[in-house]
Amino acid sequence: MSDYNFAYLDEQTKRMIRRAILKALAIPGYQVPFASREMPMPYGWGTGGVQVSAACLTPGDTFKVIDQGADDTTNAVSIRKFFEKTAGVATTEETARASIIQTRHRIPEEPLTEDQILVYQVPIPEPLRFLEPSEVETRKMHSLEEYGLMHVKLYEDISQHGAIATAYAYPVKVEGRYVMDPSPIPKFDNPKLRMAAIQLFGAGREQRIYALPPYCEVVSLDFEDHPFEATRADHDCDLCGASDSYLDEVIMDDAGGRMFVCSDTDYCRSRRAAGHVGAQGAPYEEGRP
């Protein structure tokens, strides 16, 4: 891979992405169009996040990649390897040690700091897309701050189900202006969107970048009589005993046996390393999963 430039992208492409990132930070929640490049991995597999990460990385960075909260999911492994090869950066699985974290579908449990950057992979950046398929129309709606359609949709949920039937990619309003798709994170993660770190969102196939500066006001859309509720499985982690983390449900046998474990694998590991043991967990041993 030494034939390629640092972090794969050529300098002109990086400049174009960097300019888009700066405008995205200046207009929080607004989707900046950018000339997404064809990457050596498929669209829909993190090309937006990869381009944003490539434009941000410096040789001194420590890079972490998670998919579904886990460092060892195959696509996370593949993206981490890509940057090890093309940028020669150090990588880590420890949230606290990472300076840039690229994520798909989760926000780490451990609060991020001012020195960190969280890069999201985004499939469909337009929060209004499934209500209005036309980009021409949704762009108009954002410009006019016309979000009635979204409220109608959420309200229809309530009248049909008694609750808002959106469990992930739950729409938010940023700084009282733009409605934004936080990417398909579970709504459990929505309250974490107001954080100390810089958050960058990259949608490669859809050619959009958007951002949340630190401490930006991010409000999950709701109604006074149906306030937003961040939900998780009503269990503790069976490995580390955490009662505050988002849980994956794992099917154990044919008889309906199941256990609940932290989706954030580093969070779970560090808790177990600190001596926490869940209902079905064994004491932590260095080097064992």
């Binding site: 999911t73 499939p123 469990a167 992930y168 990619a169 579970p186 988002y246 849980l247």
Partner: peptide, 18 residues
């Protein structure tokens, strides 16, 4: 094809929330 095939990737976090 990229977007179509990406649904092979794990989505269990979202599925759990659903």
């Amino acid at each position: 094809t990229g977007f179509l095939e990406h649904i092979k990737l794990p989505h269990y976090v979202d599925f759990q929330s659903e």
